[in-house]
Simulated scan of single mutants.
Amino acid sequence: MIVDAHHHVWTADYPWLSAPDLAPIRRDYTLADLTPQLEAAGVTATVLVEAGRCDAAETAEFLALAATAPRIAGVVGWASLTDPDLPATLAAYRDLPGGATLVGVRDQLQGVDDPEYLARPDVRAAMATIGGAGLAYDLVVHVRQLAACAEAVRATPGTVFVLDHLGKPRIGAGAEGFAEWRAAVAPLAACGNVVAKLSGLLVEAGPGWDVSLVRPYVDTALELLGAERLMIGSDWPVCELVASYSEALGTLDACLRELSADERAAVTAGTAIRTYRLDLAPASDLP
Rank of each mutant, 00 (worst) to 15 (best):
M1P: 14
I2W: 01
I2D: 00
V3M: 09
V3F: 10
V3G: 02
D4Q: 07
D4M: 11
H8N: 11
T11C: 08
A12G: 09
D13P: 07
W16Y: 13
A19F: 00
P20A: 08
P20G: 05
A23S: 04
A23D: 01
P24Y: 07
P24W: 07
I25Q: 06
R26I: 07
R27W: 06
D28Q: 09
D33L: 04
P36V: 06
G42V: 07
G42Y: 02
T44K: 11
T44F: 05
A45T: 01
T46N: 06
E50G: 00
E50I: 08
D55I: 02
E58D: 00
A60S: 13
E61K: 08
A66Y: 09
A67L: 09
R71N: 04
V76R: 15
T82Y: 02
T82D: 14
L86G: 05
A91C: 04
R94S: 09
D95L: 14
D95F: 08
P97N: 13
T101Q: 15
T101Y: 15
V103T: 12
V105S: 07
Q108E: 01
L109T: 04
P115W: 03
A119L: 00
A119D: 01
V123P: 02
A125N: 08
T129A: 13
T129K: 05
G132D: 15
L135P: 08
Y137S: 12
R144D: 11
R144K: 13
A147H: 14
A148G: 14
C149G: 12
C149V: 12
A152C: 06
A152K: 14
A155D: 11
T156V: 12
T156I: 02
G158T: 11
F161V: 05
P169Y: 07
A173P: 01
A175Y: 01
E176G: 03
F178P: 01
W181F: 06
A190D: 10
V195H: 03
V195D: 09
A196Y: 12
L198G: 06
L201H: 05
L202W: 13
W209G: 00
V214G: 07
R215N: 01
T220W: 05
L224M: 10
G226S: 10
L230W: 11
G233R: 11
W236S: 05
P237A: 06
L241A: 02
A243H: 03
S246F: 03
T251A: 01
T251E: 04
L252Q: 03
L252V: 05
L252H: 07
D253R: 02
A254L: 13
A254P: 07
C255H: 00
L259G: 01
S260F: 05
A261E: 15
E263N: 11
A265D: 13
A266Y: 09
V267M: 11
R274M: 04
R274Q: 12
R274S: 00
R277P: 06
L278F: 00
A281K: 12
L286N: 06
